[in-house]
C-alpha cells in the first residue's frame, strides 16, 4: 500500500511515519503514539488501534496477540470540563506555595 496512506485520521499520521517509529525500536502502539502522536486525538485510538497493531505485526513479525494494547485513558467519551468538575462550595484550590507548584513536572 502507498506509504502516504493515513492510518490515524485524528492526527493525520501515515504508514511511513509509523514504520519509521518501528525502525527506531518502537514495539507497541504506545511507543508509536509518543513518537508520532498517532492515536492521541479525539477518538483516542479507537479507530486506528487495530490497523496500527497490524502494521507492527507485519513489520516485526510479532504475532498480533503479542503486540500490546494501547493504555486506555479516561474519560471513555469526551466530556466538558464543567460536566466533569466536582461541585464545590467555594474554592478548594490549593496554594501555589504549597506542594502544588511542582506537580506538573517529573
Amino acid at each position: 500500500m502507498d506509504k502516504s496512506t493515513i492510518v490515524c485520521r485524528c492526527e493525520e499520521i501515515n504508514i511511513d511515519e509509523i514504520e519509521t517509529a518501528i525502525k527506531n525500536g518502537a514495539e507497541t502502539f504506545d511507543d508509536i503514539k509518543r513518537l508520532t502522536r498517532c492515536g492521541m486525538g479525539p477518538c483516542q485510538s479507537k479507530t486506528c488501534f487495530y490497523p496500527v497493531n497490524e502494521i507492527i505485526a507485519e513489520y516485526t513479525g510479532m504475532p498480533l496477540n503479542e503486540v500490546s494494547l494501547p493504555r486506555l485513558r479516561m474519560p471513555l467519551k469526551m466530556v466538558r470540563m464543567s460536566t466533569l468538575a466536582q461541585d464545590s462550595e467555594g474554592s478548594n484550590v490549593v496554594s501555589v506555595f504549597g506542594e502544588s507548584v511542582e506537580d506538573g513536572e517529573s
Partner: peptide, 12 residues
C-alpha cells in the same frame, strides 16, 4: 475552560 472538552487524562 468550563466549556472545553476533556479528551483524556493521563497518570505518571
Amino acid at each position: 475552560l468550563s466549556k472545553a472538552n476533556i479528551v483524556r487524562c493521563f497518570s505518571g
